[in-house]
């Protein structure tokens, strides 16, 4: 069995979880095995949503002690589920939670772990993973040597496919609540925006933005496109008051949106490592020799302070 840890939000599967589950279904069909989805929390309503993406079995761990995420608590829950179901593959999405939990689970089980994979294959029970190294400057093929195999899937890479099932439902016993570390609260950021790593459209600014206040232009364009705003390291380090959380690049976020619009970004190795996997790249820069143009699907040599507002206006203003 392939077990997939699924995160819920507002009674629905989060998109990165739907992606992992869809990929599990594809692997399972090719290998002739079953797919189990695990959800955990104080309120698991919406867990049935996993059936849409091909879960044959939905395991629900619903208990007050699971209201907040705990690395060690969830590890105990999941390790017991993997063992009880005799699962050979465990997948989660490489979200903040997935990347915190999955390696701990692999260590609990004493098995191999591949992080942030962009391709998977399952042959005779052995998982083969494709994953970026050196922030995407190389791609590795990884082979597992253990009978159970744990991997996290990179968001925005695996397509979501609906293949509805009539799943069996099963309740899992919750672990005891003497957890060593627990998430106490979420300090929400303004607007509750989409996370950079999960965004379909990113409008990013670099040193060419000249000032933090000018990022308003990018916010307007991002809003018109339904995207989010990112920044290069040069912009974050420039002392313009941009948070590190906005940084795209080797020492920031690695993103792979459908559309990445780079404004006033020269395209250093460090930046490209974070966004080179984007499907369509647009570069707007006044320097025709900027390396970003080598990467760009569409390049505009020009003044971003003219072009960006023009794009926003053509899209019908701010909305």
């Amino acid at each position: 069995m392939i077990l997939v840890f699924c995160e819920l939000k507002e009674g629905k599967l989060r998109k990165p979880s739907a992606e992992a589950l869809s990929e599990a279904r594809r692997l399972a069909d090719a290998a002739g095995v079953r797919v189990g989805a695990i959800v955990a929390g104080a309120d698991c309503s919406g867990a049935e949503d996993a059936a849409r993406y091909g879960a044959d079995l939905i395991l629900k761990a619903e208990a007050p002690s699971l209201a907040a995420y705990s690395s060690d608590g969830f590890t105990t829950l999941l390790a017991e589920a993997v063992q009880a179901k005799g699962a050979s593959v465990f997948l989660a999405s490489a979200t903040a939670l997935g990347r915190d939990m999955a390696p701990r689970l692999a260590a609990r089980l004493g098995v191999g772990y591949a992080a942030d994979v962009t391709g998977l294959g399952l042959m005779e029970g052995r998982l083969r993973a494709l994953r970026p190294l050196y922030a995407g400057k190389a791609l590795a093929t990884c082979d597992f040597a253990t009978p159970v195999q744990v991997a996290t899937t990179r968001p925005n890479v695996f397509p979501v496919t609906e293949s509805p099932r009539a799943p069996a439902l099963e309740a899992l016993p919750a672990p005891l609540s003497d957890f060593k570390a627990v998430v106490k609260e979420l300090l929400a950021k303004a607007g509750g925006r989409t996370e950079l790593a999960e965004a379909e459209i990113i409008v990013a600014g670099g040193r060419g933005m000249k000032d933090g206040a000018n990022f308003k232009l990018l916010e307007d364009l991002a809003e018109a496109l339904g995207g989010v705003v990112g920044a290069s390291r040069a912009a974050v380090d420039a002392g313009w008051g941009l948070p590190h959380a906005m940084q795209v690049g080797q020492t920031g976020k690695v993103v792979s949106p459908s559309l990445y619009i780079a404004c006033g970004i020269s395209g250093t190795v460090q930046h490209v490592a974070g966004m080179g996997g984007s499907r369509v790249i647009v570069a707007i820069n006044k320097d025709p020799e900027a390396p970003i143009f080598k990467l760009a699907s569409y390049g505009i040599v020009g003044d971003l302070f003219e072009v960006v507002p023009m794009l926003t206006a053509c899209l019908g203003g701010r909305h």
Binding site: A181, L186, L187
Partner: peptide
């Protein structure tokens, strides 16, 4: 984390 800053106590 997604959606904001998580506070963890342990």
């Amino acid at each position: 984390a997604e959606g904001g800053t998580e506070v963890i106590e342990g």
